[in-house]
Amino acid sequence: MMAHLILRVTIKLLFAPIIIFALYVQFHGDYGPGGGFQAGVIFAAAFVLHALGFGIDETKKVLPPKVLPWLMVIGVLFYAGTGVATLLLGENFLDYDILQPDSHHHAGQHIGIILVELGVGIAVASTMLTIFYHFAGREPEIRDEDW
């Protein structure tokens, strides 16, 4: 297990900055390049990196696979729910203006965009991880040694 020492130390060092970068990309999407998709993918990449260094089983302890379907659903419903909320408030689907109607400066639009981007981020991160878990967790038909 010492063979992967440098790799593992590097991954440990990188893990937190990657997550913080993902959060930055998530919430800075209004001002610079980036947004929910990119953030979600970067977030998933952090865990993929962890799995590569420590093995998929360790990663599954950090982020149990059972949580992921919930997060996927929450992500989609965050987005769709924002739309439904605007419907219930009496405006068209995804018309964010109604979320803060008195504001002169489109606070409604800002709230709406932040909410939906958050939904995108959660959904993409958890879905990408789900897909990765399923691939990485599948027993290969032919063991590595047999190739």
């Binding site: 209004d30 947004g35 998709f37 989609v76 639009q109 709406g112 965009i113 939906v116």
Partner: peptide, 23 residues
């Protein structure tokens, strides 16, 4: 919309429904 990143504005608001589809 009053945000600087026009792509985000179009993605999340003007064409927000496409993005919902994408999710």
């Amino acid at each position: 919309i009053e945000i600087p990143n026009i792509v985000t504005a179009v993605l999340a608001s003007y064409r927000g429904f496409d993005t919902l589809g994408e999710v």
